[in-house]
Design a protein around this nucleic acid. Sequence first.
RNA 1: UGUCCUGUGGUGUAAUUGGCAACACGUCUGACUCUGAAUCAGAAGAGUUUAGGUUCGACCCCUAACAGGACAACCA
Length: 564
Amino acid sequence: MKENTTPEPKASLNFLEQIITNDLENNTTSGKVHTRFPPEPNGYLHIGHAKSICLNFGLAQKFNGKCNLRFDDTNPTKEEQEYVDSIKEDVRWLGFDWEDREYYASDYFEQLYQFAVHLIKKGKAYVCEMTAEEISANRGTPAIPGKESPWRNRGVEENLDLFDRMRKGDLPDGSHVLRAKVDMASPNMHMRDPVMYRIMHAHHHRTGNDWCIYPMYDWAHGQSDYLEGITHSICTLEFEVHRPLYEWFLNELDLPNLKPRQIEFARLNLSYTIMSKRKLLTLVQEGLVNGWDDPRMPTISGLRRRGFTPASIRMFADRVGVAKRENVIEVGLLEHCIREDLNKNAPRAMAVFNPVKLIIDNYPEGHSEELPSPVNPEDPDSGHRMLPFSKNLVIEREDFMEDPPKKFFRLAPGAEVRLKSAYIIRCDYVVKDEQGEVTEIHCTYFPETKSGLPSDKKVKGTLHWVCPEHAVEAEVRLYDRLFKVSDPEEVEEGEDFRVHLNPESLKVVKAIVEPSVKDAIAGKHYQFERNGYYVVDKDTQPGNLVFNRIVPLRESWVNTEKNK
RNA sequence: UGUCCUGUGGUGUAAUUGGCAACACGUCUGACUCUGAAUCAGAAGAGUUUAGGUUCGACCCCUAACAGGACAACCA
């Protein structure tokens, strides 16, 4: 008998999932999966971090493990509580929960100190009195070995004493550092006696003035991972060369428990976007955008204000995948993800941006009626909203052409179109001003074609419209990509990314919108039919609606016209 | 001219571990449509950077070359 077995839906695993699956099968982590998202609270999170968040929390979810939120706060001069707060808000907004596992590298300062003492006693760390410049000069280059510090071989007791004095605050900033004793001739620069502690008489946002020595990233990170029982420490590619040091510390510490493993992946790059924290900060500081949450910013707070949903960003992170090769994702994918989400979930509304009067000559003067229209045709349970209709309407100027090309499905003299959820109309004549600009379009409507009634009359086009008498006016911020070019980093000699800023990334216009949106509150999403997806901005005041355009609808007609 | 990492359609990710390349976005047709959206049907587009080698058989293993990237903060 022939088995008609349904093929196993063997979802292919990305390389991280494969590693974890192997570790689980070989029991190398005693069946545990524990990840962490370790931001430094020195700036706002961006879409690249979102990828990392989705990865770390997602992996934990998928393998029944846990994911910690850990602030890598080892540099008090750069870190602030404000950033801690914004990071927590963003992670939560994305839909992830670290439960009670909110940790800080600064929680481990004492333990780290004890670990360091252990290394000193083993003869694997020493206090060095060279200046930063001297250390740098003696480190050599990637191709040339470094020179050993003159303090490299001082005795354990002396090291212990000096390290103690460093901690006590006896010694001024920059005068001493604790260094790991590894290998000044290593081809890996990070192994050339890296600094573990520096003296900084600085106030820390959590430990206050308890400490005046602070651990370096390499010293703090792996040990923090260990203390939290992290099994898979996932980070970006630039830390690849740090991995030997990460492992060296863990090994030299003679630790009893399971040691974490560092695995690197390629960070996210987006076309038409910059991702560097420093450059984003420049945009904010120079007022080239309106703050970290400017809707043109790739920050999570910017995307949120722009109107992106958590689901759309999670979907994006999922479709982008993970690997180790450098990549540039097309912004189009992000736009596709928000359209997919909002198409299913956003209520529809009609809004006219560039109005021209449309007068229905055979519709009774002074009369009006209310016509139902589905809130969201993709969602049968969404119900209907009512659209006021009368003799005097407005439509989009670009929906009328006096002398249209053959495939123009919209309004033209003698042409017939449907007004969405209302009637079919025919254009009879237009009125123009002295400049020849059309000021009024006069039409005849056909009562028997009322929406919902069976009618044999067919038309090619459907237009959105608004009855101004019953509409609300809104401010609309039309956002476009911040940069004109796909790769803003690519510049001529002497220029920088600013030359690629798109001067038209924001246009503020007015729109006439159907009354159903009148009381919408900030964060509410809409699809303006035949136009795009919008969100109510937080600048909205009673009586002053403000919308942000998230992304326009796809427009294949525009494309085919352009390609001609 | 050091070490390490990475090279698969336009973009990104796969190919169940060696059995002649799949999926998504994008693009292009066509159908449908009271959103030129969505949806549906279909098409084009890579022979896997190159050259050798192992093998009956290579995207996958080996060697070399080439290309891109990372690394010389008391940043993370």
